[in-house]
Amino acid sequence: MPVSERTSRSRVRAGDRVFAGLSTGAGALILAVLAGVATFLLVEAWPAVVAPSADIPGGQGITVYIWPLLFGTVLSAVLALLIAAPLAVAIALFITHYAPRRLAQGLGYLIDLLAAVPSIVYGLWGLAVLAPATVEASTWLYQNLGWIPLFAGPPSSTGRTMLVAALVLAVMVLPIITAVVREAFLQTPRLHEEAALALGATHWEMIRMTVLPFGRSAIIGASMLGLGRALGETMAVAMVLSVSGGVSINLISRSNPSTIAANIALDFPESTGIAVNTLIASGLVLFAVTLAVNMLARVVINRRRDFSGAN
């Protein structure tokens, strides 16, 4: 008896050890993949970094190549965020504090569906519907507000402008921001909401006193998540934006800077040699930027979680 017991116990221990090792390995693999992304991109980007300027597409070196793309990336993403973040907060408020409670979950799913639409479909839709629909408005902006550099024009006749790219991006990041903010708003302690109402606050005053302050860091974190997503969005921008290179903040013309992601999608299939390395180098820049933004976003969101957990 003692013998078989010992063997079975050691088999148990071996089984446990193998299983624990496997799952720890899987966890560590996550970190390895992230490190791997950075490493392999760096390895493939390196030839472009050390290549003579003249060999880089454009002939003026890698910095001059990437900088306008980075500018376009940041411009489109920030614009998208400026449009999407306030809307997302309003939508999250509607779902959590205005809509009938029985409907709330269903309405939430409806907004989530926006995230389910593939970006290629947004690209097609942006080109076929949204871009033409903005031509009139762009013309109006140009004629009436043309003195603002953003609307310096001349307006694009196809509507494939930075403004439309930002609008499409805004639609795409809206559900991501809404989901996080909605979650936070739902967690506002009922106790605090009732305290405000019992003081004689109206519904909106209650929200301003309790729900918004409580959700503040979630709003910030969620916006940064949305920013990260907008920075990296590829196909919709590649299809919608008419690009000419260069740096410009003109939102309604047909000559726009491209974005890093869109530029890769457009040029990669046709590229060979050092051009591929250059594109990968730009991808590395994009990876670094989005990684930083996402890490910051998560730190902000997690800190809020700790804070509300301690309450």
Binding site: G27, A28, I30, L31, V33, L34, G36, V37, F40, L41, V43, E44, L225, G228, R229, L231, G232, E233, T234, A261, I264, A265, L279, I280, G283, L286, F287, T290, L291, V293, N294, M295, A297, R298, N302
Partner: peptide
């Protein structure tokens, strides 16, 4: 790991593609 799983959900899809290509 918890933290970087969250961060990883934010990797742009094009970067994931470039990673596979580079690999």
């Amino acid at each position: 790991i918890t933290f970087f799983v969250d961060v990883m959900t934010g990797i742009p899809s094009i970067v994931a593609g470039l990673f596979a290509y580079a690999l």
